[in-house]
Nucleic acid binder design. Sequence first.
DNA 1: TTCAAGATTTCCT
DNA 2: GGAAATCTTGAAA
Length: 207
Amino acid sequence: MIANALGRAFYRRDTVRVARALLGQLLVSTIGGQRTAGLIVETEAYLGVNDQAAHTKGGRRTPRVESMWQDPGTAYVFLTYGMHHLLNISTRAAGIPEAILIRALQPVDGIDTMRSRRGLATGPPRHLTNGPGKLCQGLAITRDHDGLDLTADPQLHLLQQRTRALPARRIAVGPRIGVDYAGAEWAPAPLRFGIAGHPCLSKPFVR
DNA sequence: TTCAAGATTTCCT
DNA sequence: GGAAATCTTGAAA
């Protein structure tokens, strides 16, 4: 077991609640012998079979999205635009395909490793992980890691940094990014969460 | 078997 | 601000 890791019960709760509770927790990757880690500063919730923005809309259960149907705390990693990996964590009970997309981190450990992987020798560290594709590149997360149990995997897991979610006034809320195709009900739904005013957000929250 | 489109990033103007 | 890069998936034929 991993000391201080977020456990099954953390992820088994309501997805929006987990999305908020993940803000400020530490994502740790130990891949290729290099430890890299960052604090989660931005998340998005994807709500199962009804959500028209989710890969599981209409109850899809194809090989790609199988991880979303698995136990809470399972990694769902997919490739988009033919070149970028995106990391999600499944929530609620097995059989309920909801998940949270990790959209941005504040780099904490292994910054030199992240620079090397991202091809950014100079510049502010926030550019290493301020986007869902960027953070996967920085932490070396690929489809090889799809299906991992993030409550217990030595390569990839989350460590508890706080026992309570941030106060509501410190959490910015807005529509999800890049889901304009999802229709009038789901595209504008307030399912994106971020630490208000944090410099590592992938995009500003408009209010 | 075919084909359109995408939960993004980067580079150019 | 706009477009290209690049390839798997999912649905239709």
